[in-house]
Design a protein around this nucleic acid. Sequence first.
DNA 1: CAGCATCCGCCCTGATACTG
DNA 2: CAGTATCAGGGCGGATGCTG
Lengths: 118, 118
Amino acid sequence: MGTARRPGAYVCGIDAAMDVIGGKWKVLILWALNERACRFGELRRLVPGVTEKVLASHLRELEVDGIVHREVHDEMPPHVEYSLTSLGVSLNGALAPLGRWGRENILGGAENTHHVPR
Amino acid sequence: MGTARRPGAYVCGIDAAMDVIGGKWKVLILWALNERACRFGELRRLVPGVTEKVLASHLRELEVDGIVHREVHDEMPPHVEYSLTSLGVSLNGALAPLGRWGRENILGGAENTHHVPR
DNA sequence: CAGCATCCGCCCTGATACTG
DNA sequence: CAGTATCAGGGCGGATGCTG
């Protein structure tokens, strides 16, 4: 993990993509941001179990990889909004079939069609 | 990683799927087996860089998860063939869009349409 | 509120050697 | 050929505390 690692050593498109989404919580972050832009604290609540440090580092990696856009509003108290770039949106689209597969074959329910749980 | 971990703690289908393909070499193994059934030694050559130990453990996890079928021919010398189950085939299908995304957005070429490189 | 700094620990991964 | 056994290392993730 860590943003554009293995420079050119990718064997196929899938392991290249896996490298981008390979963090423990990244797909959950992607999923959360798919609905709407979020602030840091929101994301922390939407991704249950993640710590501040890991969330911050994952967000930074996703930002460097061009998946996530980070917008700083210069206020007090601080206000930062994270949102998907168009690349992030397309990534999420490419992830959708995998999500469906997991829901149908690992889980079993029909719940959780698209959005992040509460 | 290790086969049906986080019992029921999945938040959505994607992280459930990620848990199945979360090993460092698993998608490459899947990709290789998508073409044809393979013996252990073949896989080792088709997945460049993987060690015997890790390949064996990944294959075992994929087997327990119902993705890979392991068939032992009782001969001398030993002969074991690995192939995808129908679940594995469907997983690979769900992985295809992600592979396309990675190829188009991380790599850049049009090579590597589907099969594992030499 | 949105982080960074530091320390720590575990699990995954890797190298090597050996066996049925 | 197809693994297992053993040992070792590293990197990712986790907990806590502090700052602008």
